[in-house]
Amino acid sequence: MYDAIIDIRRLTVDLGGNPVLRGMDLRVSPGEIVAVVGQNGSGKSTLLRCVAGLHPGTSGEIRVFGEPRSDDARFWGRVGLLLDEPAWYPALTVREHLELMAAVHSSTRMTVDAALEEFALVERADAVPLNLSTGQRQRLSLAAALLRPSALLLLDEPERGLDAAFRARLADLLDAYAKEGGTVVMATHDPGLTARNRQVSPTGVAA
């Protein structure tokens, strides 16, 4: 068993010879929502990539679920990751993308219909994603991330492209996810999302 979902010690990351993270420590408990804040280029996205194992740290230690990251089916069964906008299958509709997510995972947190409802995509369910607005595509990405079962959600600027009303709705959805025992670590610039959660800064200085 583990006390911290994420336990980062003395993490240092260089990108192209430039230090992005320097000796960062971070512990995230189960059921916690952490907002990673900071200026552009301060290493927020890099931190998320390191936790997901998509970027190797230069030095330091990262433990997820009490053990070093494993990059295998078991790990990705428990970790939901939303970084940039995902690539879409050109011939699949909004509903079919969510059905695909349900097909990949043996169980889901909610039905596809419920996800379409929650993320206000019912009217666009039969559209292909490339015909949606930027904000609608972001809602679809978030719906896919929250539809699948996971114990840890890593989100990079989940508020990107969303209108003010849906940003508030997103904060509620993430609270509900955390109440079910899920943990969220998100890089964000949104004051609403940062105000109600623990804030950490990769540079050690709150933005």
Partner: peptide
């Protein structure tokens, strides 16, 4: 793999 496969199938519990 295609970018869509990488986004929807790679980071999942499927057998790699």
């Amino acid at each position: 793999m295609s970018p869509a496969d990488a986004a929807w199938l790679l980071l999942s519990p499927l057998d790699r």
